[in-house]
Computed example of a mutant assay.
Amino acid sequence: VSDFLVGLLMFFQIMLIDGCWLFGDLMCSLYFLLDYVITCSSIGTMVLISVDRYVAVCDPLQYPSRVTEGAKLLGSLCWVGSALCHGLMLRGNVQNPGRVSSCAGECAVVIDHAAGIANFFLTFVGPVAVIVVLYVRVFAVAASQARAVRSRVAAAAAAAARGSVKVTVNKSEMKAARTLGVVVVVFLLCLCPYYCVTLSADDAVVSASSAAFVICLYYLNSCINPLIYAFFYPWFRKCTKMIVTLQILSPGSSEANVL
């Protein structure tokens, strides 16, 4: 939902005709408020996915009670926390819209340097640290489980069977490492330029037109995230292929085996 709403925010960027904002100063402030709240919720969802995978691998017996039951609560807290945090950070711009606009038709907000640093740690440093730590832990546990499986198979199976299991386990380990690398690298590439701009001055003035490139790059992270997670699942790729090639329109397509 958060990534989809980020896509809706792009309509406001598209409406910046020749750098001119047509919706007024109040809508400009509300646009930036929604921007921060929704993108922060999207990043928070990435962290929650990392927690979900960590519990599923490291403590699977507790997964139904610890994650399944608490997923809605954690998702709601993510949205509420994002709204409260960024509402406080941008309340001055909402109360006095247009106070930093230098001319008619400009959409800009000012972010206090201290608030910018706090936002930097909340939506960039913190999520990256949590994601890396949890995925490294998941990778370590998966590798230890793979070694245990290999040792048991090696004791009971023939040499050919030992070789086939080794290949399968190595592929699983590489897939986990590849997922971690792609998620973190894309996150860094999409968000680094934005924070370089907003933290470059004592009080950063962020304009929807002059900062359009870094803002769109920031949004791009929410576009890529669903693809990173979804396309690592073979069944999802098969379903997408069926839709794109119109096989889904053929009789009996609902009975196709995609698992």
Rank of each mutant, 00 (worst) to 15 (best):
S144F: 12
E173D: 10
L199E: 03
T123E: 03
S164V: 11
R178A: 15
G163P: 09
E173C: 13
A115W: 15
A156T: 14
M174G: 00
R99D: 09
V169A: 13
A154T: 14
D202C: 00
A157W: 15
G163M: 01
L180A: 13
V94R: 00
D112C: 01
C196S: 02
C196N: 02
Y135I: 04
V132K: 00
D202R: 10
S164R: 14
S200F: 03
A157N: 08
F124V: 10
C196Y: 11
M174S: 00
N96G: 00
A142I: 12
L122S: 09
V169W: 02
G98L: 01
G181M: 01
V133F: 12
A176T: 12
V185Y: 06
P193W: 07
R147Q: 15
G98F: 00
S102W: 14
Y135R: 09
Y195N: 11
A148C: 12
R99Q: 07
V205K: 09
V186D: 05
Y135K: 07
A104Q: 11
A114V: 10
A158P: 04
V128A: 12
C196G: 10
R178L: 02
V136R: 06
A177W: 05
V100T: 07
L122W: 13
T168R: 08
L188M: 15
V110S: 10
D202E: 13
V167C: 13
V185D: 00
L134C: 10
F187V: 02
E173T: 08
V149E: 11
V132Q: 01
A211N: 15
V165Q: 03
S164D: 10
C190I: 06
N93C: 02
I117E: 09
A211R: 06
Q145D: 14
L88K: 02
V94Q: 01
K171M: 02
A140P: 03
V149L: 08
V183I: 08
A114D: 01
A143V: 08
R99K: 10
S172Y: 12
V184G: 01
A156G: 02
S144P: 03
A160D: 08
L134Y: 03
V141N: 06
L189Y: 05
V149M: 05
A208W: 05
A148P: 04
G98Q: 01
G116W: 10
L188T: 05
S101M: 09
V186S: 07
S210W: 08
C192T: 15
A177M: 11
Y194T: 02
V165W: 01
R152F: 12
E173L: 15
V186M: 03
P127F: 10
A201F: 12
V141I: 07
S164G: 05
F120R: 00
N119C: 08
N119K: 07
P193I: 09
R91S: 13
L180Y: 05
H113I: 06
F120D: 07
H113L: 12
C192M: 14
V182Y: 04
A118Y: 14
R137Y: 08
K171G: 01
N119W: 05
N170M: 09
V138C: 07
S164T: 11
V128P: 00
V94E: 02
N96F: 03
V197W: 11
V182N: 03
V153Q: 00
R162P: 05
A160H: 10
D202V: 12
